[in-house]
Design a protein around this nucleic acid. Structure first.
Length: 271
DNA sequence: CCCGATTCCTGTAGGC
DNA sequence: TGCCTACAGGAATCGG
């Protein structure tokens, strides 16, 4: 389930293989992803040169000499660099064939991902223009979150997963951050003191940074661009550990459902 | 405006 | 063994 660390890991993995290479073919085997892939992609990006690979939230932006390819990995998407001759498998929906013999291959069994093409500023794309703050940038501060959350009654877990507020925090890292900060996931966002927002903001930044250093979290589908798994799963303190002992206090960890999502926490450590 | 519920999709796991 | 159902979740959309 690609969240920010997994997308950043993918970006770092593919960037050196894409930059300064020409896109000599674009193979779309199945255009029915979350949104249908526009036929303009294949016409207008062909023969372009890749200039940079950026990330905004959970989107990868492949800047080319003719426009920008915007990728979203949904929940089961992954990117691989493969030899262009490598036969495609069942869920390999898109290949960017590059000069030099390699292809960037998008695999996405559940097809919640997306591929957009734009000739304009990609940050102004309708899917990106309303996104909230990048958690690892300095302008995401506890005091800003504190202000944003005043008078909000919704649960803190839902609040920090809201991409209009902060981007990149999905279910796994939301659970982990709340555990590290010692905050119960049902706490009303508007009731959180500045001091507790400070702990939580630090927890979010720390857990995301550590996960990037480990190459992300591989539970099932996610692989790095070289096919290796991410190793952060070993560091997870609560996610997927219901029934197991809390690493801080030893009490049995709980799993509850909130907003149709599994939520893992420690009743003793999170109030 | 705010917020929770619903929806898309398919591989996998668990029950019988 | 094989069939069936539940579950996983990012994020748009809908409805109260």
């Amino acid at each position: 389930m690609p969240e920010l660390p997994e997308v950043e890991t993918s970006r770092r993995g593919v960037e050196p293989h894409l930059c300064n290479h020409k896109i000599i073919d674009i193979i779309v085997r199945n255009r029915q992803l979350r949104w249908p892939i526009s036929p303009r992609l294949q016409k207008e990006a062909l023969s372009s040169m890749v200039l940079a690979v950026r990330r905004r939230a959970k989107y990868l932006l492949i800047d080319t000499s003719q426009g920008c390819i915007i990728l979203h990995l949904g929940m089961s998407g992954s990117l691989r660099m493969v030899d262009s001759q490598t036969p495609a498998e069942k869920h390999d929906h898109v290949d960017l064939v590059l000069s030099g013999g390699q292809s960037l291959r998008l695999r996405d069994p559940r097809r919640f991902g997306a591929v957009f093409w734009t000739k304009k500023d990609p940050l102004k794309h309708p899917r990106l223009c309303d996104l909230g703050k990048e958690p690892l940038e300095d302008d995401l501060t506890a005091s800003w979150l504190f202000e944003q959350s005043r008078n909000r009654k919704r649960a803190i877990k839902s609040f920090i997963m809201d991409s209009k507020i902060i981007v990149g925090v999905g279910n796994i890292y939301a659970c982990e951050s709340l555990f590290i900060a010692g905050i119960h996931p049902d706490t009303a966002a508007g009731k959180l003191s500045l001091k507790r927002w400070d702990k939580l903001t630090h927890a979010i930044k720390t857990v995301l940074s550590k996960a990037i250093k480990q190459g992300g979290t591989t539970l099932k589908d996610f692989t790095r661009s070289d096919g290796q798994p991410g190793y952060f799963a070993q560091q997870l303190k609560v996610y997927g550990r219901e029934g197991e002992p809390c690493k801080k206090c030893g009490k049995t960890l709980l799993k509850i459902t909130r907003g149709q999502r599994s939520t893992f926490y420690c009743r003793q450590c999170q109030k």
